[in-house]
Amino acid sequence: METSCLLVKPGRKRFKSLVVKTVFLILGRSFHAASKLDLDIKKEIETWDEGFKFMMKVFPESPSMIVEKRKGILVYRGSKGGSADLTIIFKSIESAFLVFTAQCGTCRAFAESRVIVSGDISKAMSLVRCLNILQRYLFPLFINRFILKRPPSMPWYKQFIRAYIYLLGVPFGL
């Protein structure tokens, strides 16, 4: 008698997937808002070519976030748009969830090989510096102290940029 062995279809992780999709949306819109106002981010992206595209995604294909440099600022292009010049790939939805819920910093995620980079490494270093600045806006200092090696400084006038990101950038994509 032949042994029967049925195919197994693993389930979904809908909640974690939703959280990661939401954070990608917040990050994409925050990149756009911050690139218009923050001088440090402006200085970083000055060296990027016009039309330079970067993508963050979770293996194998989704969710994802695509951001493009257009007319000197970063523009959020949503989750679809083909290839990019630089791609940051989370190896699993669990890795992305750890990072996006501030349980694991970006530098620790790299150190634990939870994330891989495809593309020009020097551009990736520049992008990580932008990401660190952005995280400083998005999270309070006590969380930043946990997830960043050394949180970027936050002078008083940057509170206006933070307010803009929270009130107009993230909700309306401005």
């Binding site: 530098c107 790299f110 150190a111 980079v117 490494i121 020097s122 990736a124 270093m125 520049s126 990580v128 960043l148 090696k149 050394r150």
Partner: peptide
Amino acid sequence: AINDGSLTFNPVE
């Protein structure tokens, strides 16, 4: 140096 990939793994910023 600040754009070198090794910097990611340095323990201090």
